[in-house]
Design a protein around this nucleic acid. Sequence first.
DNA 1: GCCAACGTTGGC
DNA 2: GCCAACGTTGGC
Length: 160
Amino acid sequence: MRECSYWLFKSEPSGYSFHDLLNEDNHTAEWDGVRNYAARNYLRDQVKLGDKVFFYHSNIKPPAIVGTAVVVREGYPDFTAWDPISEHPDPKSTLATPIWFMVDIRADDFLPNEVTLTQIKLTVGLENTSLLKRARLSVHPVTREEWTIIIALSKRKQSC
DNA sequence: GCCAACGTTGGC
DNA sequence: GCCAACGTTGGC
């Protein structure tokens, strides 16, 4: 019996928001379009069924973790890569030799309060979190301790 | 809108 | 295989 792992997935809400995920059938969607090797490796090799996911909104004021989701399908080829009219086509990726991978996630719920990037930067225990160390990565590992701290933060009303 | 950080590409 | 040029991300 494997313990679940924790992740943080980024999305620009102008393109795809947590609200969009909640509005999907069964609150579930393919996490497609990742075209970065480090993120791909996580999706292909390490993100497992039942793992928990923070949904982070980037490129918005303020950038913040807004909700949680759960992995409902493990890594499989991102077929949007070999669809020439998809948003992120990659002719080098084929059915026989896929390069890019995705997982499916199902929205759980909004956090009681969003946890902003500023809060994350100011919170003891989160100073080494991957989000702060590798700013441009779109899929980050989160430790169990970090997950617990962020969940606790989300239950606290912000004064500013 | 700016621009720093950083991942990717491609010439050599 | 190095590394300069280039493109993208994303906070500010």
